[in-house]
């Protein structure tokens, strides 16, 4: 805690205190919470906060990974390492399995962002989770900027942006009927820069792909995509080596890297503080589909 004589806390401490409050509130009031853990920076920080919220006891809920089958190996390894260290129960909702058993079908463009929603919802139903912690931040995107900390979802997992529950002070209403659920967002009020400042302050290890490294890439729609088993150069696209890092970690088939020399947390902070493009704008093919791509996905039950 950074405090001064005047009983002030730093803004990072204020954010941490608020997030811990939300985590505890969900565990106290909901029956079967689960934390969405992708190995991305937001979910890493959220898991870190969960550890702090219940210490010295263990984290009192399992983690859920929606595995699109398009993974960065470094991130999967990180996930498994973290799960082992904390002795967590890991539930994997697998898109490849759902494809194999016919729950979903591959979409025409090969992107799995949309089809992961039914897979997530099936896992929620199977395990009867009634509260899902998500690492979404309101500064990420204009539809997220509108969402409550406790976001009510109907029995189809859908968000109704025109009919959200009033949410006053820190009194969160998690009441729901069987089958309905709450998405809880402890990091609602954090920005990308806050997340990195916190990673630095707490000395949290993040997957290596968040730091600058050499990678073979191609340029597509103005973004740099790593050449891997999911992304192959198309006609006219040339492979080349570049020094890059990832600002977000999502589905490996639609998440792009950015040119960067930031190979330490300090340099990442400098870079993020100076950047003029949002993280999703810089790296996400899936958000470019339409003006309201995120809102539409959220209505369908996405995070």
């Amino acid at each position: 805690m950074t405090t001064t004589a005047a009983y002030q806390v730093s803004h990072l401490d204020a954010l941490e205190a608020e997030s811990i409050f939300v985590l505890r509130e969900v565990v106290a009031e909901m029956e079967r919470p689960v934390l969405l853990f992708s190995g991305g920076k937001d979910s890493i920080v959220m898991l870190w906060l969960a550890q702090k919220a219940f210490a010295p006891a263990n984290i009192p809920f399992p983690v859920l990974h929606v595995d699109t089958g398009h993974n960065f190996p470094e991130v999967l390894a990180y996930r498994d390492q973290r799960v082992a260290e904390l002795g967590l129960q890991l539930v994997v909702a697998s898109v490849p399995e759902a494809l194999a058993n016919g729950l979903v079908r591959e979409s025409a463009d090969g992107m799995r962002n949309r089809i992961q929603t039914p897979v997530l919802l099936a896992a929620v139903e199977q395990h009867r989770f009634d509260a899902l912690f998500g690492g979404a931040r309101r500064d990420e995107e204009k539809a997220r900027a509108k969402e409550r900390v406790f976001s009510f979802r109907d029995e189809f997992g859908q968000w109704d942006p025109k009919n959200q529950r009033p949410e006053l002070w820190s009194l969160y209403n998690g009441r729901h009927q069987p089958g309905e659920s709450i998405r809880a967002f402890p990091l609602s009020n954090w920005t990308e820069l806050d997340v990195w400042h916190y990673i630095a302050r707490e000395r949290i290890e993040a997957p290596s792909i968040y730091y600058a490294h050499e990678r073979e890439v191609i340029e597509r729609d103005g973004m740099l995509y790593a050449v891997n088993e999911f992304i192959r150069p198309r006609a006219g696209e040339e492979r080349f080596k570049a020094r890059v890092r990832y600002r977000t970690v999502g589905d490996a088939s639609c998440t792009a890297a950015v040119r960067s020399d930031a190979d330490t947390v300090a340099k990442v902070i400098e870079e993020v503080a100076a950047t003029r493009i949002t993280e999703r704008g810089a790296t996400r093919g899936d958000d470019r589909v339409s003006e309201a791509a995120m809102e539409d996905r959220k209505r369908e039950g996405y995070f």
Partner: peptide, 22 residues
């Protein structure tokens, strides 16, 4: 879990002073 390698430098650079929030 912490890394003493990459995170160390960052922690200093980001020594977050008590900036208040409105």
């Amino acid at each position: 879990m912490t890394t003493e390698t990459t995170a160390e430098v960052g922690a200093e650079a980001a020594s977050v002073r008590p900036m208040d929030l409105l």
